[in-house]
Amino acid sequence: MSAIIVAKKDFRDAVRSRVLLALTGLFALFTVGGAFLASRLSALFEEGGAESTIDLILALQTPASFLVPIIALFVGYGAIAGERESGSLQFMLGLPHRRQDVVLGKVLGRTGVVAVSILIGFTVGLLGLFAFVGSVSLVDYVAFTLVTVLFGFVYVCLGVGLSAMTRSTTRAAVGAVGLVVLLWFAWSVLAQALLFVIEGTIIPETIPGWYIVMNSVTPDAAYGSAITAVLGAGQFTASSAYETQGLIDGGVPIVAKPWFGFVLLALWALVPLALGLWRFDRVDL
């Protein structure tokens, strides 16, 4: 109950941020642009416009998988550290709230903020789709939106978790940027390097299972897997390109299965959050 009170207050406070407004605007621009591009591309290749909402969602997934983490990390990284720096945490914790309640309330409140941002972006994207394409499967679109909100929640947990582990917003910000660099760039380079070291080439004839696993465990890959699971279509997982060509050694590993995306998302949300809670509960403010 205490966490809900904190979440409500935090939502009211954080949703008024101007930078958030700008990021949401940018996001809306990308979704509408993605919708436009998708409709034009499919119009070029297939007479009569996009065949299915799935294709269009593919076009929207790309901006979402870049901008949702940025928005969520931006909204999350200062949640605890920022209040420790400014001293407003002493006001919050001077009231009868446990430290866990504050962290959980922050996660809920800021997830709400990110959800609003996503809903605005996707509503604009939806209008774009209606304008450019004409018809869209609302069920698929809503499912896609919900998985994206879950994805945003994961990055909020990462951001707030980081924020709870340090007393400086600078360090939390460095952590957030480091996380993005690791997950978006370093991880795939590392996978490629390992592939080269183990297989002797970066284009082996069959793809080893561990490489598929490695490419499936990042939150972004897990997001793709989860979309695939929800939509029942295969093109969003990390392994789909190899899978359709039957190139994977010993079949698709369980970690790369679409439904496992939800397990991975849960781990990416809960592990950093648990670490943040554990640390924050023990420190001197």
Partner: peptide, 30 residues
């Protein structure tokens, strides 16, 4: 803390909330 009222030193309010919202938050919290 349920039975204590606290005025910490050098505390910063929440920039984007009004004074009344702060008081309402404290009332709800307690």
């Amino acid at each position: 803390r349920k039975r204590t009222g606290i005025l910490p030193e050098g505390v910063e309010p929440y920039d984007r909330l009004t004074g009344r919202q702060h008081v309402a938050f404290a009332i709800e919290s307690k």
